[in-house]
Design a protein around this nucleic acid. Sequence first.
DNA 1: AGTGGATATCGTCATTCTGACGACAACGAA
DNA 2: TTCGTTGTCGTCAGAATGACGATATCCACT
Lengths: 255, 255
Amino acid sequence: MIPRTAGAFPVTVDVVALTVRDGALHVLLVERLLDPFRGARALPGGFVLPGESLEQAATRELAEETGVTAPASAATGEATRSGRATAVGQPEWHLEQLRTYGPQDRDPRGPVLSVAYLLLAPAFGLPEAGGDAAAAGWFPVPARDLAFDHDRILADGVERARAKLEYSPLATAFCHEEFTVAELRHVYEAVWGTHLDARNFHRKATGTPGFLEPTGHVTTDGPGRPAELYRLVPGVSPTAAVLHPPILRPAERSA
Amino acid sequence: MIPRTAGAFPVTVDVVALTVRDGALHVLLVERLLDPFRGARALPGGFVLPGESLEQAATRELAEETGVTAPASAATGEATRSGRATAVGQPEWHLEQLRTYGPQDRDPRGPVLSVAYLLLAPAFGLPEAGGDAAAAGWFPVPARDLAFDHDRILADGVERARAKLEYSPLATAFCHEEFTVAELRHVYEAVWGTHLDARNFHRKATGTPGFLEPTGHVTTDGPGRPAELYRLVPGVSPTAAVLHPPILRPAERSA
DNA sequence: AGTGGATATCGTCATTCTGACGACAACGAA
DNA sequence: TTCGTTGTCGTCAGAATGACGATATCCACT
């Protein structure tokens, strides 16, 4: 019933996993153990297996190559096959499809379709290297000279994240469930590479309806006055919901 | 070199072609001539052939199923194989990838990957039905009971278009090269389903830097005072560029 | 020619939002 | 107690917004 002239293509998933560490945006990269591009750094990813969904393949490859396993709430369908322990302090993440890169001229082995995913997570430590997790690590963005067309995929992922911070609550995906306004501001500053006025940001973030909700808790450690803890308003999707008015990147005001 | 466990999937492209006709948003649909879903309406689309890029497949399927051919400037790579004449008065369009729909549970024939594209164009007449162009036509959005998961793909495409109008010059993709401020406003009103104040919209549209550029021409037909003609500032991509501040949907102000 | 309808464009004004920045609050360290 | 640090609230001028009046310039009709 499917026409014989139709092509059948190998399909890979590649994951652009971003986090904010030490005030800067980082991406999760692995060192390739096999040709092509052996020894080069690349986005974690691999071939979709028969019967899998794209999201299942993305989480499976992430687990196999980096040891990072999905939190229970984000796991879709079957349990991951990796028996590795969950990464330290990694309670939740946000996974969304980025875009698909055409079958031609991107893999020396022939036509391969790649569906890229964007994963945003709070900073967490990686499991000890070894086993499947060969030389996985966080690298500052921008990273260069990645395998395949991963330079472009990474750039697309970073640009998606930058744009979405403006008009969605996606920045909270980089924070743990409870966070301070300053932590949220550091996310914006790291992703955009700009400086934001702490007082105006506080007013804007706490004043935007449908964004932040105080938990009643306060921080206890660190210097200075303790900060109130907030969470994303329950029921609000980090992707779909829209911030009105948006939080605009300051640099673009002069464009 | 590609692992034997990797699956190979048939890949289709589906095109959500939107335009504004008679003040309302319309989508280009075809009637399926073959099973599955024979007789049902569906988005134009079909299988990617070996050697094709995704965009090539999208424009080819569009030409085969609806007779609509790409303008010269938008044609990517090889010429379309359809010898059909170009659609009446259809000078340019905007084509961008929407998203990819996973291989499972969306085609009764088995796992099929579908890469959806979003096409925005000024209103234009369709070629006479016949040949490949079987019962292609414009239908008001929302359309219901489409084949496969095309209801969802259409909804995703419409939502993408609605969101992008706010912070990008994408609305100009629904207009011809030269257009009036009122025509541009009608696009926003049709896509968003809202009413916009003509005077405030004029001030906002003409006052936003990097958006509109007067051509010096004026309209000559129709009742009322002739309107000045504008074009999108040359060099500005309808997708990538960002409007600051954005043009926000009025209904959401109360959210 | 004159009038009226229709559409385009400009102007006004109160309200809200934004960016810059001062002031104070609440902690730990010296 | 004093000081440095960080968080939170206020103030104020300028910009942006929404509502809407006023004027410009066409066509159709008398």
